[in-house]
Nucleic acid binder design. Sequence first.
DNA 1: TGAAATGTTGGGGCG
DNA 2: ACGCCCCAACATTTC
Length: 482
Amino acid sequence: MRDHNTIIVWLREDLRLGDHPAFEAAVRAGGAVVPVFVWSPEEEGRWAAGGASRWWLHHSLARMEEALAGCGSRLVIRAGPVAETLQALCKETGARMVHCSRRYGPVGAAQETRVTETLHAAGVTLRRFWVLLYEAELIATGQGTPYQVFTPFWRRCLAQGEPRMPLPRVTRLPAPARWPAGVALASLGLMPKMAWAGGISRAWTPGEAGAQAALREFIREAKRVENYPADRDVPAVVGTSRLSPYLHFGEIGPHTVWHAVRGAAKTGGEAYLRQLGWREFAQHLLHHFPHTAERPLRADYGYFPWREDALGLRAWQRGQTGYPIIDAGMRQLWETGWMHNRVRMIVASFLVKDLLIAWQAGAAWFWDTLVDADLANNTMGWQWAGGCGADAAPYFRVFNPVLQGEKFDTQGDYVKRYVPELAHVPARWIHKPWLMPELELAAAGVILGKQYPAPIIGHTAARIRALEALTRMQKAARAQTK
DNA sequence: TGAAATGTTGGGGCG
DNA sequence: ACGCCCCAACATTTC
């Protein structure tokens, strides 16, 4: 049964029913609505979802199937090239209109271009809906160029006024007379072959309901947003929103978060909304500079003398560097699919500056292990750490892992949670066990180099080496431009 | 959204 | 009572 009034809603990073402009407009159009998800990792190339993201996506799609069933609808899942698959579905259903939520970055944007062209040839229109608080086309400097510094960028955004209110939740979706065929979710093979996701599933509840629960807890039940400015930097405390994976997969939209925070938070709201601003900034940067996922924004960093160091990289990945705050962070990531943002900055600085390993290697590991892996955020964060991005930390800002640990994890609670070998080390030594007197080490049951490693590199010397590498890069860049 | 090196200041101990 | 020195605390500069 073909019905030209049918609209296909092509779901991507927008797996929700609340505040969903593409669904809302499709329902308003009055015809049948066919929700579709197309799995096409080969089209995403290098940036196909990593292991942790696939685990998350599997569960999100399962929740989406349930939610759509509750609306008298279904989720049609297919695997294959996106443009051709959508074209085939239009033919099968008679749809002449496809709705989707926009994606930023090289992969998503290219996909939209290809889909638009393919569908156009078949007489079908792709209508893209906005997803950010402030879309990239609306924000530019006085000269019409993209902002590369956050503060003026965010000031410009705020000058546009408050973001729109969230749209009402979709509750009924008119079904087509006949559903097109789909494949079973399990056939996509998103779940890990080995059972490594136990820690992740204990830590997270993917899906729109999980997102709403996290938001409620953040602003109302635990009222964490009130203390956000101070607590967000303490990794042992749950002081952040923990909304990042939900925002990435679109299980909650930024407009919903914005207005919930605005309405509820007397204090602390501004600081958190600013973090939503960083998310917008990252999306805009990747839109304007799509090559930055691979290469430094600041071209002179192309001359940086990175080291090849497979052993060092592996020690960092496994949380075996001998620096407790680094190892705790990397193990939190491995176990739970997430790492506290303060600790992300510390471990990134260590990889890039102490080990002199290229930031791309760190970005690749995060991509595979984070449940909130997002190309825009990941790219901006790693370029920030590498000193080569927009508004980046100057390269000579080298985090001292001992001082950072002592400052933000004073009692060592965070370290002890993820590095049980150090459970009996007193707070005084928890961030520098290699300086402990022999007797105290023995009393704490620690044998350095045995069950917990000695530091794989001395920070003081590493810092000097990093600064020398920066000098060499600047020389090489200067010689090249002459 | 650093940290180390270097400079400055001021209180207090002491002859 | 005064000057000298020490050094902690804070500020500034440098990487």
